[in-house]
Design a protein around this nucleic acid. Structure first.
Length: 548
RNA sequence: GCGCCCGUAGCUCAACUGGAUAGAGCAAUUGCCUUCUAAGCAAUAGGUUACAGGUUCGAGUCCUGUCGGGCGUACCA
């Protein structure tokens, strides 16, 4: 069962009808918004101001004409007013609110689902960290953001696949293998030369140790780093998967960059671009004519060493995604990767693909703050904080919440000390607490009352009750909006408002001890709030506990 | 130099495709636990939305410029 933005659609419809009285060349875009001031009603339309110029009349006069021509259902709208420079303000009828409350209760776990992306096949690619070490706090934002964006697409009707792209053939991986090899020899008391710029983390020793345990001295004579690399990749990937699982993230597919070489897609990509006249050879390297697209330099696709730069497989990979028939491919990556994006887009466009089907969620960096000072992390240097360590301290819920609470577009300051001792003050608990409170009340209500007969929701007349219902009604649109913008933090902002409105209600209105009919109505209201909180927290991948 | 992102309360951040009196949390001050969970509630205080212009009925939001911060601008990923 999907929810619809019924009221908004209804208002657009009736206003549109009234507009027919004017001789307009084209139907203007009717925009409905929610006023910040309660005195301005529940919904507002600025159409009269938009029409002032084409109609050569003052906005208030136009608004009056629109309102005069308005036919509306009084069961839905209780008042229409013209205010300020020419806003038309609508007030919802209580009956409408009660009906909608009933819908929330009936729709239950599906309340908030819409069809704005119905029928679309969407691929969300995220994390995509090469297996050179455990996931760090730095990867956390990517992982949680990607997974939550995927959930938002699911809630708007899309068929979503989560994909992890990796490369186990590059220089980094070779250095990783050499690092393990050196530690292995070291553990056996042999001379091992630690590679220049090698991985210094303790986990390298652990991997080496497990090789010693399994193979003994068997690998001492190994000429190359291959067996060490393979072991490292295996263990690190297992570790990464476990971390993701702990964060409530499950990938549907893993895509190895290497497969693009095996099935000839890399070659094919170059040749196709060459056919377009967009590729040429110079100084032993293969160049992409990015100057054609307005860049100030051309870009190397294949180095003179014969090794491709990452852009080439990136283009081939995106072509592959579109070949698989996705309607939309979303990439999640940090601001430091933004430079590749135009090249990839130009690449696939030149190959004849619709680049509109590729979309990017760029997030700004996480600034790690420790002991009040920012510090730089490096997997190679091993001065990083892993996601596992973080979750050991604060749990998965807080971790997810923390990464989602800010707009992706802004720098996220992650104060480790604060996160660790967050406990009581952490905002995620505010939401969970509201849910636990409701659960607790419902348990008690069942002991004390024995409701029978229809619930009369029209007994909900207290301002706190009305506000609470109105807030809940904004949920489906909030989700659709967050999905459209790929910005999960809107869900958090909404849930904070909902939890806050519930606590006001809790403060103002009692359930236990009230007259049976009123208690019944309020209990239904509380149930609806718990449901919406569960749905919202579910989208964020955060638990909604029954008690705390 | 050029490109992208950001600059909002003491701090961390909101503000839906331009809307009416810019909002939360933390920190500060003051009240509130014999009644459904005080991980809470109520109240007070805190602002020239970096700065200067422009666009219009209306700008935190759009345009131009300046200043400040982050990230790019590799035959690194």
């Amino acid at each position: 069962m999907k929810t619809h933005f019924s009221m908004k659609q209804y208002l657009v419809e009736i206003i549109g009808k009234s507009l027919q009285q004017f001789d307009l060349e084209e139907q203007p875009d009717i925009h409905i918004e929610e006023p910040n001031q309660p005195e301005h009603g529940d919904a507002s339309c600025n159409i009269a101001m938009m029409l002032a110029r084409p109609l050569k009349n003052n906005p208030r006069a136009i608004a009056q004409q629109i309102v005069d021509g308005l036919e509306y259902d009084e069961q839905k709208i209780s008042a229409v007013e013209i205010a300020g420079p020419g806003f038309i303000n609508f007030r919802f009828a209580d009956n409408y609110l009660f009906d909608e409350l009933g819908t929330i209760l009936k729709t239950g776990a599906d309340y908030g689902k819409t069809d704005t992306n119905e029928g679309k096949r969407v691929l969300v690619e995220f994390v995509s960290a090469n297996p050179t070490g455990p996931l760090t706090v730095g990867h956390g934002r990517n992982a949680v953001l990607g997974d939550t964006v995927a959930r938002l697409f699911e809630w708007t009707g899309a068929d979503v696949e989560r994909e992890y792209y990796f490369n186990d053939a590059g220089r980094q991986m070779r250095v990783l293998g050499e690092s393990v090899q050196a530690r292995y020899l070291e553990l056996l008391g042999k001379d091992g030369e630690f590679p220049e710029g090698g991985y210094e983390g303790e986990y390298i020793r652990d991997i080496a140790q497990s090789l010693v345990d399994e193979k003994g001295e068997e690998l001492v004579e190994s000429k190359d780093e291959k067996p060490f690399k393979e072991k490292a990749e295996e263990e690190i990937f297992a570790d990464i998967s476990a971390t993701l699982e702990r964060m409530n993230i499950k990938m549907d597919s893993y895509f190895n960059e290497h497969s693009l070489y095996e099935d000839g897609k890399i070659e094919e990509t170059i040749e196709k671009l060459r056919d377009q006249g967009l590729v040429y050879d110079k100084d032993g390297a293969v160049w992409f004519k990015t100057t054609e697209f307005g860049k100030d330099k051309d870009t190397v696709l294949v180095k003179s060493s014969g090794e491709p730069t990452y852009r080439l497989p990136d283009i081939a990979y995106h072509a592959n995604k579109l070949d698989r028939g996705f309607d939309l491919c979303v990439d999640v990556f940090g601001a430091d990767h933004i430079a590749t994006y135009p090249d990839v887009m130009n690449g696939i466009k030149s190959l004849g693909y619709d680049s509109e089907k590729v979309d990017v969620v760029v997030y700004q960096f996480v600034t790690l703050v420790k002991d009040g000072k920012p510090f730089k992390m490096s997997t190679r240097k091993a001065n990083f904080v892993t996601l596992d360590e973080l979750m050991d301290e604060v749990g998965a819920d807080v971790t997810r919440f923390f990464f989602l609470m800010r707009s992706p577009n802004t720098h996220l300051e992650f104060d480790i000390g604060q996160a660790k001792e967050a406990g009581e003050k952490n905002p995620v608990f505010y939401l969970q607490y509201a849910h636990a409170r409701i659960s607790s009340i419902l348990r008690k209500v069942e002991d004390e009352y024995d409701f029978s007969g229809e619930t009369d929701l029209s007994l909900l007349t207290h301002p706190s009750e009305i506000t609470l219902i109105k807030t809940m009604l904004k949920f489906p649109e909030t989700i659709a909006n967050a999905a459209r913008l790929r910005e999960p933090h809107h869900v958090i902002t909404f849930l904070n408002q909902l939890a806050s409105d519930f606590t006001s209600f809790y403060h103002d209105c009692r359930i236990l001890g009230e007259d049976e009919k009123l208690a019944q109505a309020r209990m239904e209201l509380a149930k609806a709030v718990a449901q919406v909180l569960r749905n919202g927290l579910g989208i964020l991948g955060i638990s909604a506990p029954e008690q705390m």
